[in-house]
Design a protein around this nucleic acid. Structure first.
Lengths: 246, 246
DNA sequence: CGACGTATTGACTCGGCTCAAAACCTGTGG
DNA sequence: CCACAGGTTTTGAGCCGAGTCAATACGTCG
């Protein structure tokens, strides 16, 4: 099953880091310093990388698997802030926030990542203008992404949010009928979209009947992007090809 | 009524800019360059500063009044992303996003601000490390703020969100009973918190009966922070003095 | 005083949550 | 290859929070 790992299993830390936009245009020696200080790790499903309010020791560059970012309330509920996978960096923002994580992170399946000391990033940002700029850019994208999230939560109903989720999975290039696979458990998608799994299930039925999509297990077939995007995007400030960044 | 303006009416552009954390530790000559390029403006209620997807020409440093940041959907709904006032900067983030605004901004009362050309900021960030770092820090705070927003929308009910809003208005120093004034119209607070004004009104009644607060017009009296924060923060990942930044 | 905008209340609907039960997968061991 | 155990997903019934639409009350300014 972990066929994803195959692509990355041979890569060196340097190669992984080099591909990040964070290090675009950064001197090789600098990237190398990060590479030398970092190490690969593969952990099973359910591993907690860090918790909210933890001191930040490391940040993580994912190369395979999915990680859930969340906040836990006093009375035991959980809000899933985001789900991230290969190519994403997590925990880096703590170096800008007094070295404390403002959310928790836990794997939802076997996950491989590069673990890099926060201290190195913190020191480098102070001195290296390119990296600071790159971080600024990625932070900005993150903000945009979250802004969209807030809009989605206030203006779209459950079915529309699910449809929106699917549209973002679509490759622009693909030809109809589009065929895609849900990236992780439905119960997680539900949490990610701010609803209960029962609601997800029912809302999915509604979406199915409204937009002619077909679902079998984790496989989705979308006969017409137009029908789906019309149903979804009318309640959103972005029209369909709403490029989903980062 | 616009007594707030009194404090700022005498200030020069330089003085206003100098107080921003964006320019903390920046050379005087640099700040001066911004000051020379900027100008004060006072506009009436309802003025649109910019709309979503507009090319960014200016960014704005507020010195008095409240501004609503929003996104409008295709079918005519509106999500209020944030409400900002004196000391806040708006529209600056566009220089990191291809020079296009990712939300609209409109005044909800008479507002005074300093209008500064985006091009200057864009150019300065590229060269000035201090400013890039300051921007990074403020961006990071913004992100934290929005993360909290997302949590709030998914986990707190209407009454709790209102209570949370009030708690954030409280000065830590204040002694009970705390007495505060709602900063803008209730219908706007409602929109800001992602609910309809009818719901706001009813939820406020509920909050009143649950936490012994008193409301007369825009005046709120909180006899016990403990009771209120217990009611509100049990559904949140932050305990009460959840410092509300920026 | 009247007029306008803002806020509240009432009656009703509907979407999403809760709790509980059934159906469906997937992997394991006999 | 089948049976069973575990988790995940779906379905059902009932409830409750928030939205809708419409009417009334309140406040402020002319």
């Amino acid at each position: 099953m972990p066929s994803v790992a195959a692509a990355t299993i041979q890569m060196t830390p340097y190669e992984v880091l080099k591909e990040l936009s964070l290090f675009a245009g950064t001197a090789e020696t600098t990237v190398d310093a990060f590479a030398k200080a970092s190490q690969f790790q593969t952990v099973p499903k359910g591993t907690v990388l860090f918790l909210q309010d933890d001191e930040s020791e490391w940040f993580y560059v994912l190369t395979a698997g999915w990680v859930k970012l969340f906040r836990e309330t006093v009375d035991g509920n959980e809000a899933v802030i985001d789900m991230v996978t290969r190519g994403h960096i997590i925990g880096d923002t703590a170096v800008l926030e007094d070295g404390v994580h403002s959310f928790g992170a836990a794997t939802v399946e076997e996950t491989t990542f590069l673990r890099v000391p926060s201290s190195l990033l913190k020191a480098t940002i102070k001195e290296n203008h390119e990296i600071a700029l790159a971080m600024l850019t990625s932070m900005s994208k993150l903000r945009t992404r979250q802004t969209r999230e807030i809009e989605s939560l206030t203006l779209q109903n459950a079915s529309q949010r699910i449809g929106c989720f699917m549209l973002r999975l679509c490759q622009l290039s693909a030809v109809e009928p589009i065929h895609l696979t849900l990236p992780y458990d439905k119960s997680l998608i539900a949490a990610r979209l701010g609803m209960k799994s029962e609601t997800f299930s029912r809302a999915l039925n509604k979406l199915r009947s409204e937009t002619n999509i077909t679902i079998k297990g984790a496989n989705v077939e979308i006969p017409s992007i137009d029908i789906l995007s019309h149903y979804v995007c009318s309640a959103c400030s972005n029209e369909f090809p709403c490029s989903d960044l980062t």
